[in-house]
Each structure stands twice: as structure tokens, then as C-alpha cells.
């Protein structure tokens, strides 16, 4: 009952053009049936994510470890709440990040869990920068 060959083949990597995403905006693309948020963070959002003491987080991780060096403003996360799989809404909640409407989990501008029942941070999918304006997910 594991995924069949077609399903696996359809899950191959995809490329995303980043030029249309202005600072402070985000897009949602689908990869393997999962929504992936690609967020072009503002300076304020990056600073907020880096100033919070890591040890105070429920699932400690530095912002640096969740983004690619040299592309610090780009946050790429799987938009599936780690609680029960709903899709959080971007740019909502108290932490300038994501808010899940189902059970009230709140994530910060680095996609880290800050409040609510979710046990872990939003997952970071495998991805790399092909060029400064092109991203490959998968």
C-alpha cells in the first residue's frame, strides 16, 4: 500500500522563479501535494527571528540553520502544521509568521513553533538555489 510509481515520479523536484516575490511577500507552491511557503522576509522579520534566545523555544533551532547562507531573507517551509496537518496562514499571529486556524498554533517568522499544541517547527523541505532568482525544491 506504499505510494505507486506514478505518485513517486510526480514527486520529482520542481523549480520556482523568485523574481515576482517582493520583499514582505510570499507565494505558495505545491510539491508532492504539500503546500510550500516561499517567503521573502523583510529585514524586520529576519531580525525578529534572530534576536529571540534559541533556548527559550519549544523546538530550539537557530534561524540560520533554517535558511541557506547568503539567501538569508528567503524562508522556505512546508506549510503543514505539525500538529494535525492543517495549512497555517502566512503573515498572521503574534510572531509575524504563521497562524494555524485549526487549533491555534503560532509560528514565528522563521517557521518555528512559538505557541499552541503543535510539537515541532514547520519542516524545511530539501531545496537549493540554482541561481539568485531560481529555487529548486526536492
Amino acid at each position: 500500500m506504499n505510494p505507486d510509481a506514478t505518485t513517486i515520479a510526480a514527486g520529482a523536484p520542481i523549480e520556482v522563479d523568485l523574481t515576482p516575490i517582493a520583499s514582505g511577500q510570499d507565494i505558495k507552491v505545491f510539491w508532492r501535494g504539500k503546500p510550500i511557503y516561499i517567503m521573502n522576509r523583510t529585514k524586520k522579520q529576519v531580525d525578529e527571528a534572530r534576536q529571540v534566545p534559541v533556548s527559550s523555544l519549544p523546538d530550539p533551532a537557530t534561524d540560520q540553520s533554517r535558511v541557506k547562507e547568503g539567501h538569508d531573507q528567503w524562508l522556505v517551509v512546508i506549510g503543514i502544521c505539525t500538529h494535525l496537518g492543517c495549512i497555517p496562514i502566512a503573515h498572521e499571529g503574534n510572531y509575524d509568521g504563521f497562524f494555524c486556524p485549526c487549533h491555534g498554533s503560532q509560528y514565528d517568522s522563521s517557521g518555528r513553533i512559538r505557541q499552541g499544541p503543535a510539537p515541532a517547527n514547520l519542516a524545511v523541505p530539501p531545496y537549493q538555489f540554482v541561481s539568485d532568482s531560481k529555487l529548486q525544491i526536492g
Binding site: M1, N2, P3, D4, T7, G11, R32, G33, K34
Partner: peptide, 10 residues
């Protein structure tokens, strides 16, 4: 994954 037969509900 066994329940879904894929990477998400589909």
C-alpha cells in the same frame, strides 16, 4: 504514508 498512498491525502 501507508494510509495516504502518497505524500499527502489525495
Amino acid at each position: 504514508t501507508l494510509l495516504w498512498g502518497g505524500y499527502s491525502v489525495g
